[in-house]
Simulated scan of single mutants.
Amino acid sequence: MGLFGSDRIYKPNQREVEEARIALRKARSKKGRAEVEASSANVVQRLVERLLDVGIDGVGRFASAKDLAARIEKKSRSRERAIRRVRNRHVKLARAGGFASGLGGVTTMAVALPANVVSFFTMATRMVATIAELRGYDTSRDEVRAAVLLTLSGQESDAILKQAGLGAITGRLAQSAGRRLTPGALMLINKAVGVHLLRSVGTRGVGRLFSWVPLLGGFVGQAMDGRMMRRIAAEADEQFPPVD
């Protein structure tokens, strides 16, 4: 077993892949956000629950954020060095997953892309949560978990917070972790983040439609997923400043 649990790409089960396939189809609907919100409530809920359960709490040999943070901090000279190791490793895992998903070109995309979507966002959630743990946040708290999810949504976070009745946060998302959020607000945040991720899934799929050729599609997927994971890592680094 490697430092990062199984030290491999997270592999979703058949049910997760099927749900991601359905999500992709709905996210590409011409009806847009209203279509996703109205007809995909269960898909959104399961997606968010899975990100929280697996991405933050871990499953099997896929280490939880808390365990990973403790393990890697012991083998690093400082917390910031540990964070760099977490970021770099997850970017490498994302690039490997992106390459594998696009390797077969259009002939395998229908199966490989949904699996990659679940894998990517699960690993991204764990990366953000691990950075939060290393910076002194408790990812067992609902408010911190909501902030982790909001980090995945990037520039959409202000709009999501407004939908939840919280208003835009001036400064860092981690400030929301200091607020006591009601169950209703948490539910609205989770739903809005889930909808945003589904829509971004559709964009990722459309982008990869240009990579029809086997092997070439692998390099396109590798570049896209590596760049996106780096962007999320940068967002996490900014949004979760050290507590102490």
Score class of each variant (00 low, 15 high):
84 R>F: 10
13 N>L: 09
159 A>T: 14
119 S>E: 00
142 D>C: 07
194 G>A: 10
168 A>L: 08
180 R>N: 14
46 R>K: 02
51 L>S: 01
206 V>L: 14
131 I>W: 01
147 A>H: 12
187 M>A: 15
43 V>R: 01
122 T>I: 00
222 Q>D: 13
217 G>W: 05
201 V>G: 13
223 A>I: 13
111 V>Y: 15
80 E>Y: 13
80 E>F: 12
16 E>Q: 15
44 V>H: 00
49 E>L: 06
85 R>M: 14
25 R>N: 13
116 N>P: 03
96 A>V: 13
210 F>M: 14
104 G>P: 03
85 R>V: 14
123 M>D: 01
222 Q>I: 09
104 G>R: 02
12 P>S: 08
242 P>W: 12
122 T>A: 01
197 L>D: 08
16 E>V: 05
115 A>M: 01
53 D>T: 08
86 V>C: 07
145 R>N: 11
24 L>R: 03
76 S>Y: 05
78 S>L: 06
49 E>A: 11
107 T>I: 14
175 Q>P: 08
126 R>I: 03
238 E>Y: 14
10 Y>L: 05
82 A>P: 05
93 L>Q: 03
44 V>F: 00
37 E>Y: 05
162 K>I: 09
57 D>P: 08
137 Y>K: 03
31 K>N: 11
84 R>W: 10
120 F>R: 00
146 A>W: 05
107 T>M: 13
112 A>G: 02
43 V>E: 03
190 N>V: 05
103 L>D: 03
167 G>V: 07
244 D>R: 13
90 H>K: 09
155 Q>I: 07
188 L>M: 13
155 Q>G: 09
79 R>K: 13
33 R>T: 08
221 G>K: 05
65 A>S: 04
43 V>D: 02
199 R>E: 15
87 R>L: 12
